[in-house]
Design a protein around this nucleic acid. Sequence first.
DNA 1: AATGAGCGTTGCAAGAGATGCAACGAACCT
DNA 2: AGGTTCGTTGCATCTCTTGCAACGCTCATT
Lengths: 257, 257
Amino acid sequence: MSQTVDRALGILPLLAEGPADLGQVADRLGVHKSTALRLLRTLHEHGLVYRQSDQRYRLGARLFALAQEAMENLDIREIAHPHLVRLNETCGHTVHLAVYEENEVLYIDKVESRYPVRMYSRIGKPVAITVAAVAKLLLADLSEAERRAVAEKLEYPLYTACSTPNPAAFLKELATVREQGWATDLGGHEESINCVAAPIRGADGRVAAAMSVSAPNVVVTADELLTLLPLVRRTADAISGEYSGRTPVTTPDRDTV
Amino acid sequence: MSQTVDRALGILPLLAEGPADLGQVADRLGVHKSTALRLLRTLHEHGLVYRQSDQRYRLGARLFALAQEAMENLDIREIAHPHLVRLNETCGHTVHLAVYEENEVLYIDKVESRYPVRMYSRIGKPVAITVAAVAKLLLADLSEAERRAVAEKLEYPLYTACSTPNPAAFLKELATVREQGWATDLGGHEESINCVAAPIRGADGRVAAAMSVSAPNVVVTADELLTLLPLVRRTADAISGEYSGRTPVTTPDRDTV
DNA sequence: AATGAGCGTTGCAAGAGATGCAACGAACCT
DNA sequence: AGGTTCGTTGCATCTCTTGCAACGCTCATT
């Protein structure tokens, strides 16, 4: 819509790949060096871009700060966090909280397992959308038309033999999930990792977020993990209650000192 | 430098404060609604801004992803992480890693203490620059002129009775830190929390990052914490060695599954 | 020491593109 | 229904961006 801004913003993902010098930026943007320079300068002034000692540009610190503030504005996260911690204390496994936003599902909170085996996932990172249990819940809540549209657009990487292979299989899985009100991922992303997930609903009954418990085979079998389902659902319902304003908030214990 | 981009980027910090509607954005930017609309649309296309169900705008998901990728490009973080984890396993306290960038010091990694008492700090969050031990180390390495310039520009909030009160005191502290090659923060930020920090140097000998160990009074006294100084310094030196390429990397054990 | 290549930077003229206006449409409230 | 508020669109104006060419700097080569 706005060419100048469009070009400037195009620099960001480019620098996300790694540092680049003026020439490289100008080339990949398809503009004159002087133009790229001015755009970079503006980005720099806003702290989104940083110029390192070798003169090359990379993403700047303000980006972290912004992402941080954005995160703190997600009130669902605030509400959910103590519940996630409590669940983690009870079962010991890794707990995730995720939301859906414009064709992406991303983790907005995570409590690490209480044993050394860790999952590779990071807050802010997009989720493997075709296999993750939380993603299934979030997408299952869309209208049928939206689900079909999204399912068609996605890629279906075969992380493992259990990964969802194509749109048809995905839509079928979403239908099941929609029906039963919970979801699993049994080795669909990493051979040895299973997840159980439950939805968190807002006042309008729509799925606002989803949470999951993940554990590797070496710690508990898939069947054992499934026995946690009632607990996960209860936790999710408790969060839903607070989030939708039905339950008065009891003790909003923060993770402060 | 570029008015259009400047205005567009000005929207981001504004939205970081909380969701806003078109009118509010236009007003605070001092432009016509239609202009604000076009800028927001462009930001939206790039995923930096999200339009929530009540039509108001807030910061978008791409911001998280960008911040994430930016972080992963910081190779010092990759190198340091296993060392930080090991240190945390040894002493049990919270370990931080921070860098300096254009008048800001920010945490780029953190390993939580192994006991329930937690510090309030987040990766990506700017550090309390006038009191934090890591900040002292990072600023102490600047040239004298730069130090003076920065010291003058800063605010000196009195978090506690021990907080650095003014530029003069800060410069004096920086001189001490520069001299001794390590730094502390004894209750300067939170009454009950002490920190010991050591610098990580690049191949050119300049301070590239700083790491610290923090613990509350209720767990260890300041004196006890200070006994960890040699360990902290050794860890920092080990990281310096790898970062500057002097030490061959032994076992780069990642925090993957 | 001199020459040349490569890269970032600056001033400027031309015109593309951003801007604000006014008018429309939709939703909401009285 | 009538009125208000807010987001959206088309358009004419002219500001602001753009690419060019020239400059200066650093570094490598002869």
